[in-house]
Design a protein around this nucleic acid. Structure first.
Length: 638
RNA sequence: GCCUCCGUAGUUCAGCGGCAGAAUACGUGCUUCGUAAGCAUGGGGUCGUGGGUUCAAAUCCCACCGGAGGCUCCA
């Protein structure tokens, strides 16, 4: 120590357990010189990453730092052990169960008599940070099943894990930090001193092993950093994300509201409705270009339809039902059956295919109360749904077209980064293997021919067909699943949907379900957080606001407003009896892209003085010039 | 559905057994203003709903409704 290199410490106890039998000195000699103070752990053969337990298999040794996710995870994993030690110290009868690192930080689940109070958490956090000062080595020890069971005799959860691991043929390893010991597979930094600070984020209930049937444990989420200032940055970032919260912005910008009279359902005010219209108009125009037709189907249909579609069997719990004139009806949770009824309304020929039937379909799904989450999870939402009825040969070109359409829509909406996931045949699948292979090949080729990078999820498809999901990344680095393309071999059969082939015989078409925004409601929420409420010009609810400097120029300002409105620019005027500074401030807080100051000078010159919402002043512009520029920008969706 | 927390003015929140408050928004009057807050003044709340404890409840307890976060779910 002392230098900026890390001395590896290899306690005698664990030395004999090195899988390869090499000594600590040998490892230190081999990798020691490369270990700077940034090193948190090492990785060998992409598999094991612990400074205190390197396994040499002629493999490459990789030094993990804070920049690597694996390095972070090693630090966080150790953090979770320290947290468990702190909880055990503060609440002696708490039984630790499981505590892995996650995408951001780590959690640990405890079996406790009562949930952690705010005060408990404060004590625990304080204790955890005190424990760090001890700078304990993490020491691995491998033991037999019996030894492990004896050690954790009072902890049924750990016992369950031990049984499971030994059954799977795994060795049972323990990790010590000072006197505290935990059952653990490993993946740690070598010393708790590597952690500078532990911060508890939140706590909440969590079921043992994620199943509702099991006991509810208390989970603590926390995060750890190798330097204190990183925590400060992280906290700042979180505050930034909180400012962008779409529910908060929804109130501040008068976009939408939720009322207790309709839980889980949004009320869209004027402003959100304008954005909605911009989004739907955009997609409509794009679909029209590609030969789509648009339809509108009933919200309420007889329950016999839903029995035929299979929703009754699989989806009843999430559906709303109504009785009308003593007959049972259901509110649609999906649009597909309605579209099939339209398809079947007339005889179709292979010459009619593909048919691309779209609808901004309003669906109701009775989600459990606990899962509702702003616009992200609602009970009533609108899908930009479409069903493409086609022949097997048409799958590939249609998928390609759809991928390109989605790409265009996402990029225009400011989501430059997104990725796709292809899910293939699950074990329980409907349709012949040949049909699946053909469909999966078509999807794969479509992805490759559009140069799309995608992740493969083998066996993750729906039972009725393979699918491609689209995940967009927002300005805060979070990903959201939005678009989806799903092949369906089943529904057309259930409804005996047909077309007449050139062989003069009936055939069953393939049905492709496809949504780009996914749920318009959710997409609006994502957009709001992505832009922090400062929507691009083409989406902004109010695109320009005219501010007369005093009542003297009110008439001129009204005239400007009227001209902009005539040219399709969403314009307002602020004629309040207030100073110009006040009105500018108000407009900027409302995140209106274009703020147009109209005073006596401008009235004389037939100009307006343009200021943008970020505070930059663009200066005087002729009205006509401003209008043509702005209309241009709106059309180009900038 | 389960766990934790939260419901006070349009909004953001303070008050936490003893007269219901602030800021902001809104109304009115003055001011007529040149790029992020002009001055004055006024109205506005059965403290989510219902029950209980108490001489007294916004405040303590219980139930329900609604919300936030988490678990789970999202064929």
């Amino acid at each position: 120590m002392g230098s900026n290199q890390i001395t590896l410490s290899f306690p005698d106890e664990s030395k004999q357990n090195y899988a390869t039998g090499i000594t600590g000195a040998e490892i230190a000699q081999k990798i020691g010189p490369r270990l700077t103070k940034d090193a948190l752990a090492i990785q060998v053969d992409n598999a094991t990453f612990e400074l205190e337990r390197p396994i040499l298999q002629n493999g490459k040794i990789r030094i993990l730092t804070w920049k690597d996710l694996e390095g972070k995870k090693a630090l966080w994993h150790t953090g979770s052990h320290v947290l468990a030690e702190a909880v055990s110290a503060v609440i002696p009868n708490a039984r630790p169960t499981l505590g892995p690192p996650i995408e951001e930080g780590f959690y640990y689940d405890f079996d406790v008599d009562k949930p952690f109070s705010e005060e408990d958490l404060q004590k625990i956090e304080k204790k955890a940070n005190e424990l760090l000062a001890k700078k304990e080595d993490l020491i691995r020890k491998e033991v037999t099943k019996e030894e492990a069971l004896k050690l954790f005799k009072d902890n049924p959860f750990k016992k369950e894990l031990i049984e499971e691991h030994t059954k799977a043929g795994e060795k049972i390893s323990l990790y010590y930090q000072g006197k505290f010991v935990d059952l653990c597979r490993g993946g740690h930094v070598n010393n708790t001193g590597k952690i500078a600070v532990i911060k508890i984020i939140k706590s909440g209930g969590a079921y043992w092993r994620g199943s509702e049937k099991n006991k509810m444990l208390q989970r603590i989420y926390a995060i750890a950093f190798p330097e204190k200032k990183m925590l400060d940055e992280w906290i700042k970032q979180r505050e930034e994300a909180e400012k962008r919260n779409h529910l908060k912005l929804g109130k501040e910008l008068d976009l939408y509201s939720f009322q207790k009279e309709a839980p889980g359902t949004a009320f869209y005010h004027q402003n959100a409705t304008q954005i909605w219209i911009a989004l739907t108009d955009f997609l409509r125009a794009e679909q029209r270009q590609r030969g789509y037709i648009e339809v509108i189907t009933p919200l309420i249909m007889k329950d016999s339809l839903w029995k035929q579609s299979g929703h009754w069997d699989h989806y009843k719990e999430n559906m709303y039902f109504v009785k009308i004139d003593d007959e049972d009806y259901a509110i649609k949770p999906m649009n597909c059956p309605g579209h099939i009824l339209i398809y079947k309304n007339s005889r179709k020929s292979y010459r009619d295919l593909p048919i691309k039937m779209s609808e901004f379909g309003i669906v109701h799904r009775h989600e459990k109360s606990g899962v509702l989450n702003g616009l992200f999870r609602v009970r009533k939402f609108t899908q930009d749904d479409a069903h493409l009825f086609c022949t097997p040969e048409q799958i590939k070109p249609l998928i390609k077209e759809t991928i390109q359409l989605i790409d265009h829509i996402y990029k225009t909406c400011g989501f430059t980064e997104y990725h796709m996931e292809l899910s293939t045949r699950p074990e329980k699948a409907m349709g012949s293997p040949e049909q699946w292979t053909q469909a999966e090949t078509a999807l794969k080729e479509a992805l490759e021919e559009t140069n799309s990078s995608y992740k493969l999820n083998p066996g993750d498809g729906a039972f009725y067909g393979p699918k491609i999901d689209f995940h967009i990344k927002d300005s805060l680095g979070r990903t959201w699943q939005c678009g989806t393309i799903q092949l369906d071999f089943q529904m057309p059969q259930k409804f005996e949907t047909e077309f007449i082939g050139n062989d003069d015989k009936p055939h069953t078409p393939i049905m492709i379900h496809r949504a780009l925004y996914g749920s318009l409601d959710r997409f609006l929420g994502i957009l709001t957080e992505h832009y922090g409420g400062a929507y691009p010009l083409w989406l902004a609810p109010v695109q320009a606001i005219v501010l007369p400097i005093s009542e003297k120029t009110l008439d001129y300002a009204e005239h400007v407003k009227a001209e902009l409105l005539e040219n399709g620019i969403r314009t307002q005027i602020n004629s309040d009896n207030q100073t110009i500074s006040y009105k500018i401030r108000d407009a900027q807080l409302r995140k209106i892209p274009l703020i147009l100051v109209a005073g006596e000078k401008e009235a004389q010159n037939k100009t307006i003085n343009v200021r943008k919402r970020d505070g930059t002043v663009q200066g005087e512009q002729k009205i006509q010039e401003f209008i043509s520029n702005t209309v241009d920008r709106i059309q180009q969706k900038q």
